[in-house]
Amino acid sequence: MVETVIVPLIVILTVLFAVLTTVIFMVLLERKVQAWVQVRYGPMRVGYHGLLQTVADVLKLFLKEDITPARADRWLFTIAPLMALVPALIAFAVIPLSRDLTLFGLRFPGQVADVNVGLLYVVSVGTLGIYGIILGGWASNSKYPLLGSLRSSAQIISYEIAVTMTLVTVIVLSGTLSMTGIVHAQLDKGWWFGFMQPVAFFIYFVGGLAETNRLPFDLPEAEQELVAGFHTEYSGMRFAFFFLAEYTNMIVISAVATTLFLGGWLPPFPNVAWLGFLGVVPGWAWFMLKTFGFLYVFLWVRATFPRYRYDQLMRLGWKWLIPLSIANLVVTGLMKVLV
């Protein structure tokens, strides 16, 4: 009973809590980093140096009037934010956040479920998030959301191909689809796959920026052209759900990148003897550190890069990243056979 119900429940709640807390701090961090890059302070009023700013924002969104446009498809308009949020959250089920821990004589697994097709699960769940965006834009029955959602889904589908190809190279290297298995494969090789597959890592990073609609690829919500993209008509709680989904997706991308390319919960160079003291830091702390490092790069890129034009975006995706990822896959396969 304790082993089969309570322990998994505790793990699930911990992961969920960790993700939602991370979202709250990401929103604040995003505003702070933007402000620092532009030599400003950012939010300072609520809490110490604005620490509670996001809490205040969420409270405000809770209390705001929740408007449904008169000509909207009510039913779809209501469930679209949920359809965006749920896939983003359930992707965390297979991501190993730590090695298995033993607390109070109970064995806590480091991830909710070690599925033998974990990596494919992440990809397939990730493709479901697109429904929230398309339906949110369509159900609003308004032109900017529709244009924004069409752009967004076209962009996500295009970049998904390149990203999935890079994941295949990781599968070729590690010989397993299980996320924990991939981390262990990096332990065996002694190198993080980020070092062995710099091209794949780069493509994954660019594709991740595009899939989460971040600058320099934030065409779907380019304010100057489309007001706010697919969530223009949303307000209150339902807008908050979209917002949450977007940030959760960023964390998913970072967590997957950490697991696949940065060694998951492994310390740097786990097989080098004189670096063994790094093992003192627990695995989940390494995981958090790497994930936040990756997330910081997202914010950094946002603060420094200008936005692409839509045709440039599509050309980059189809004419550069996809051929590059296929070539990288072929080279990886050849190396695997020859070496």
Binding site: L120, Y121, V123, S124, V125, T127, L128, I130
Partner: peptide, 9 residues
């Protein structure tokens, strides 16, 4: 997984 990825996605 393929069903979700190819059909649904």
């Amino acid at each position: 997984v393929i069903q979700v990825m190819v059909y649904a996605g």
